[in-house]
Design a protein around this nucleic acid. Structure first.
Length: 593
RNA sequence: GCGUUCGUAGCUCAGCUGGAUAGAGCGACGGACUUCGAAUCCGUAGGUCGCAGGUUCGAUUCCUGUCGGACGCACCA
């Protein structure tokens, strides 16, 4: 469909050029990119629409007249174009009615092979995506879940669009916050293990981070002692390092369990403890080249006021590096490790300023790839009760949340009496929970703050992940029944594709086919704008379209056996597309639910 | 104070590079299970797209201003 659309766009533009030269015009119609190709709001208007408003002034004619002349010009073209469709002027629009059989054939291919997506606009692009980046002093919370699913989903979308994607994580495993949980453990831990307290290991570590607040009340010198622990860590004190390693292992193992549960993963892990000194030399080089300057007290600065930012410290007066210095080093290291065409940072929008500064600094250091850095900023996840705050204990823990959702889903399965049909109700419930959560988090544009309403997310009706899963399961159900019905009903792999497609060339089946065909357009748009929400919207549209279609159009119970067989192939293609889309959105696909 | 960002139906959100009657879901009201699984479907009600200007043949979309919210402007990360 995407190829056919481009073919028509080229043809329409060529016709515009002809019209221009016939009118003695040499300029004014712009380039092909400025020619708008869209989808008419109603199928009876056509399949592709080209508005002619923009050319009225150039030609000094009304858009409707231009559209009519365009129709005539295009209709005079040979079969090599007209076999793909028929142009028609509809008011001020030049619309195209596609030769549907070729579209249908393309769509039905999806039921025949797994790897059917051949449209790869990002082929040859190397894209690195950094996301999650947890601290090792506490378990993941709801905000991380949004980050994780955004990063994972975007990576899958880019990959589906043909890009070579590398997912990376940077573990924040050093610093004062880590030392606080270590100190609290020294005081209260009594040498116990997570198993001793029956806690998931990252929750165990998090418990001691929280206990640090108690320690502060009991010991006024707690903050000082934590600082001392940081100094010991930096000087390589054996005992401190031993504790640090143990607690970090607990934290990281626990966090990785949550990743596995959520279905996210990484190609490479970076650890801040190994990279945090890396930017220092870069800054000193920049200093010697006059990109930065040294203050009287010895600290190193960069002045970004001319681009609307401030003066930023890059090295402390004692020569140690700070946050942004580390990111400078890490970015440069990555560009050497794996020369990317693009590097995407999935980080909360609170850090927008930080990334503007970082990208500008890298530009000034002379790295041309600095313009290929992208901060995918996402908004906070708020609760109906207000913002999540660690100190007020209003943080929603990631594992607890998934547990809650899964328990609720299981109750729902039992309430509907489907527990015997789904096999393992607990396993299905877990998948429904993840589908609900991930879809909920992805449906909103990343830039916006969003409201996480447990009530609404837990209700499995409407514009939700489970709805999409349900339509997938229904498609599977029809296919199962079709297989049972015997050879007459089963789709004939050997049937000529064109003959099957011809059967489906009718008004009843077209809306679903058109929706299926627009998959690649949605994918490209989502990849280009880096917005999984576009894919989420497509997923819901497709599910709803499928729902409406199978309600009105009998598949198995159809009196016409050839139509029945053809529609069975269409169900297969729809199921395959739904499955693909669910994969892109980290929504587990379910054969039954 | 400066900067970034958001402001669309009672609520939560879509609306692709400006374009053909602004769309979903929830909630409300009314319907549909002897019919390929009702976690579904259909119908009704509900919007001066924060406000005011500007650009344009045309603005929810772009520009300016303004009001309101969020976030940021550390030798924290």
């Amino acid at each position: 469909m995407t190829d056919i659309k481009r073919l028509w766009k080229e043809a329409v533009f060529a016709a515009l050029e002809n019209l221009a030269s016939a009118s003695g015009l040499t300029t004014g119609i712009g380039d092909m990119e400025s020619l708008v190709a869209e989808y008419p709001p109603k199928p009876e208007l056509g399949d592709i629409g080209f508005p002619m408003f923009g050319y009225a002034k150039v030609f000094k004619k009304s858009p409707a007249v231009i559209a009519t002349e365009m129709e005539r010009l295009l209709a005079a073209r040979g079969e090599e174009l007209l076999c793909h469709g028929r142009p028609k002027a509809v008011g001020p629009y030049l619309n195209v009615f596609l030769h549907r059989v070729s579209v249908i054939e393309e769509v039905l291919e999806r039921g025949r092979k797994d790897d059917w997506n051949s449209y790869l606009p990002f082929a040859g692009r190397k894209v690195m995506v950094e996301f999650s980046c947890p601290n090792t002093n506490k378990p993941l919370h709801l905000g991380h879940l949004r980050n994780n699913v955004l990063g994972e989903s975007l990576s899958r979308i880019l990959k589906a669009a043909g890009a070579d994607v590398k997912k990376v994580n940077l573990i924040n495993d050093r610093g004062i916050h880590i030392c606080k949980s270590m100190l609290a453990y020294q005081v209260y831990g009594g040498g116990r293990n997570p198993e001793d307290e029956g806690l998931k290991s990252d929750h165990f570590v998090g418990k001691y981070y929280v206990l640090f607040n108690q320690l502060k009340k009991e010991d006024p010198k707690a903050e000082e002692k934590a600082q001392e622990l940081l100094r010991l860590w930096e000087s390589g004190d054996a005992e401190t390092l031993k504790l640090w390693k143990t607690m970090n292992r607990w934290a990281v193992e626990g966090i990785k369990t949550t990743y596995a549960r959520q279905g996210v993963g990484f190609d490479d892990y970076y650890f801040e403890s190994l990279t945090y000194t890396r930017g220092k030399q870069e800054v000193l080089d920049g200093l010697s080249r006059g990109v930065f300057y040294r203050d009287d007290d010895g600290s190193v600065w960069v002045d970004l006021e001319d681009v609307g930012l401030d003066k930023k410290v890059l090295l402390r007066k004692d020569g140690t590096s700070i946050y942004i210095t580390q990111d400078i080093g890490t970015a440069i290291q990555r560009s050497k490790d794996w020369p990317f065409d693009e590097l995407v940072y999935v980080v909360a929008s609170e850090q927008h300023y930080h990334f503007r500064a970082l990208f500008e600094i890298l530009r000034r250091l002379g790295y041309s790839w600095s313009e290929n850095l992208f901060h995918l900023a996402y908004g906070l996840v708020n609760l109906p009760s207000g913002r999540m705050k660690t100190r007020e204990g209003t943080v929603v823990d990631a594992d607890d949340l998934i547990d809650e959702l899964a328990a609720l889903a299981q109750k729902e399965i039992e309430a509907k009496g489907r527990d015997s049909m789904v096999g393992d109700p607990a396993a299905v419930a877990e998948k429904v929970a993840l589908g609900a959560l991930h879809y909920y988090l992805l449906q909103t544009s990343p830039t916006k703050d969003m409201l996480y309403d447990p009530e609404q997310s837990l209700s499995f009706t409407g514009n939700t992940g489970p709805y999409i899963q349900y339509m997938g399961a229904r498609a599977c159900s029809i296919l199962r029944k079709g297989a049972e019905a015997g050879p007459a009903q089963v789709l004939q792999e050997g049937d000529a594709a064109e003959a099957v497609a011809a059967v489906l060339d009718n008004e009843a089946d077209w809306p679903l086919i058109r929706c299926l065909a627009s998959y690649s357009g949605a994918l490209e748009s989502a990849a280009r704008t880096k917005e999984p929400s576009i894919m989420a919207a497509y997923a819901h549209e497709l599910a709803a379209e499928f729902s409406a279609w199978y309600r009105d159009n009998p598949v198995l119970s159809n009196p016409d056996p050839s139509l029945s067989a053809g529609r069975l192939q269409l169900v297969k293609a729809a199921k395959s597309t739904l499955q693909q889309v669910c994969g892109l959105l980290c929504i587990p696909f379910l054969e039954v639910m």
